[in-house]
Amino acid sequence: MAIDPNISEPRRVEIATVAVREAQAQKTGGKPMLDFEGESTPYIDYESIDVLLSLQHPRSPVHDEMAFYIAGQVMELLFKLAVTETRAATAHLEDDNIPAACKLLRRITKIEELLTTIWPMLETITPADFKGFRDYLGTSSGFQSYMYRALEFSLGNKNRAMLQPHRGVPSVYPELLRAFESPSIWDVTAKLLARRGYAIDPDHLERDVTAPYQPNASVEAVWLQIYEANDPANELFELGERLMDVAAAFTTWRMKHLVIVERIIGFKVGTGGTAGVSWLRSIIDHRFFPELWTLRTVV
């Protein structure tokens, strides 16, 4: 069933208690429900499945484009979830609730791992397959993903120029600007360490959170102290490891992206104006939470 996704229609809202579920199971003899009132089902309404499955509009007649198209949409959904969880984890750290933040950081890592597992499906698209529909992409590029950009901003990779593609999109720009202007999870972590009595450079704590992040010696020294103690029971040590999980998984996703692009298009230029693989190589060395990486050479 296809509907216009721009039309907001009332959806069925059901609240089923334990008693309701048990009564229904007795009524069906423990078998699935098969009869529903109206022109939909509770699952379609809960997940907006009819809307979701109406949003696939490949541009070319080439069969393989659907795989490419849906892979991109799935990634966008996962980026959205990762942004949601990063913001929630950041709020927990602002409240000094490290266990709650760590729980969400574990989820973010799993989301990133799931993102990485999408790339092998795209490996089934051969260079000739992709050439068949690539022109239909026009100048569209994953580089223009605002959910990906919001995730990078939330984790701490700030670059004002990355706001530029979205300035003319009123439904997107204000929210993306908020992500850019808000302290990242790494900024909030530094302030948490200071509240716990660790000596963080005051100037670093008051840094412009919209500026590109520069590693700070005091931050590395504090994390080195925590890591040299090597105490798994220390919730700050746990926090460091969960943040590293997120950073490492993100790097793995980027590296796999580089490999899949080179596998499919070689060294052709990108659709969005980039140099393609060579541009991807230029960003591959970026690391979120850099002091957590550099301390490993010292500890």
Rank of each mutant, 00 (worst) to 15 (best):
I3V: 10
P5W: 06
S8P: 00
P10G: 10
V13K: 15
A16P: 00
R21T: 06
A23V: 01
Q24T: 12
Q26S: 10
G29I: 05
M33D: 11
F36Y: 06
G38N: 01
S40L: 03
T41Q: 12
P42A: 05
Y46M: 11
V51A: 07
S54R: 10
R59Y: 00
V62L: 00
V74D: 07
E76G: 02
T84P: 02
T84Y: 13
A89T: 10
N97Y: 04
A100S: 14
R107P: 07
E113W: 03
E113K: 15
I118Y: 12
W119Y: 15
T126M: 04
T139D: 12
F143M: 11
Q144I: 06
S145E: 02
Y146C: 11
S171M: 10
F180W: 09
S182Y: 01
P183R: 10
D187K: 10
R195N: 12
R195H: 11
P215R: 06
S218A: 05
E228H: 12
A229R: 13
A229G: 02
E235Q: 09
M244K: 09
M244L: 15
D245C: 09
A247S: 14
F250A: 08
W253S: 09
M255P: 04
H257W: 03
L258D: 08
R263Y: 11
S278I: 13
S278C: 03
S278R: 14
W279H: 15
W279T: 15
V299N: 05
